[in-house]
Design a protein around this nucleic acid. Structure first.
Ligand code: MN
Ligand code: MN
Ligand code: ZN
Ligand code: ZN
Lengths: 149, 149
DNA sequence: AATACAATGACATCCACTTTCATTGAAGAC
DNA sequence: GTCTTCAATGAAAGTGGATGTCATTGTATT
């Protein structure tokens, strides 16, 4: 277990204790999956990961857990153009830039406090083909670019 | 009728003719309301405006009309954090910055091709209290700021 | 006019998400 | 360890924005 994971789990249990909420098996499993994935995600992705190992977990429980993580300050809730509610590990400031692959849909974080031109340069250096300038930078990620040609 | 409105209506009718689609009373009413409002909006807002004058319009028709405007290149579809699909008049480039008032929900356009610091300065000069830096700048608009204190 | 077929609108359905509620189970009291 | 309490779970129902269905209406062409 990484240092970061340990810290997050401690923070969560402190929150639960303070609020007189309960540390259930499901909440621990969901938090583990969320921290282990280590990139912005959403309910359905986590649900599939969890179901593959623990087939008894309900989808409502995953939704509720993610909201709880946000309430605990462990996760940050955000949203892109699609209908999905997304979550990422919290605690990295006010800037939230995402590279959204229009091919595979993968969301990559891209925090950079310098100016626009610099943001574009970094995006390109990550193999991202920028199509439009928005908080969500949409394009094709390096993996998809390699696979298709 | 403004120059801009005239042009938009011509563009729409050209599109309809090309595609062998029909210029209906409803489509004209919806386009008028959309252009007259002159700021980013969504189906429900337009529906209320339209129903107040023309009580026989169906909500599905408004949804379909807005999608059609986007297909015609007249409108641009986008989305903010809430569940609503928004539309704005198209034709002002790739940059799309919005000031979203966290109090009244009004969306204001804020297109600026210079760097971040400059964006923040412009936002402030418009009376907007910036809370976080994202494509959607959330804060309080000048109107709400005046009303509350 | 008459015809062809796109558009409308009431209604049903979809999908992400939330709520409900009977049952389960975590944690403090003893 | 057992008891007691009440939060948590999960299956199922509900919600809300958006879209599909289809009988009827309306537009544009002949
Ligand atoms: Mn972020
Ligand atoms: Mn714009
Ligand atoms: Zn990709
Ligand atoms: Zn406001």
């Amino acid at each position: 277990m990484t240092q970061k994971k340990q810290k997050v789990k401690e923070q969560f249990h402190l929150f639960l204790t303070k609020k007189r909420l309960k540390a259930t098996l499901q909440r621990n499993l969901i938090l583990d999956a969320f921290v282990d994935l280590d990139r912005p995600t959403h309910m359905d992705e986590l649900y599939l990961i969890l179901r593959s190992k623990h087939s008894h977990i309900g989808h409502a429980t995953v939704y509720r857990a993610l909201r709880l993580f946000a309430a605990a300050g462990i996760a940050r809730e955000f949203s892109l153009g699609d209908g999905l509610t997304r979550y990422e590990l919290a605690g990295h400031g006010k800037r939230h830039d995402y590279l959204v692959c229009s091919d595979c849909g993968t969301v990559t974080e891209f925090d950079n406090s310098s100016i626009e031109e610099r943001q574009l340069a970094v995006a390109r250096s990550m193999g991202f083909t920028v199509e439009a300038l928005k908080i969500e930078l949409r394009g094709v990620c390096s993996r998809c670019l390699t696979q298709s040609g």
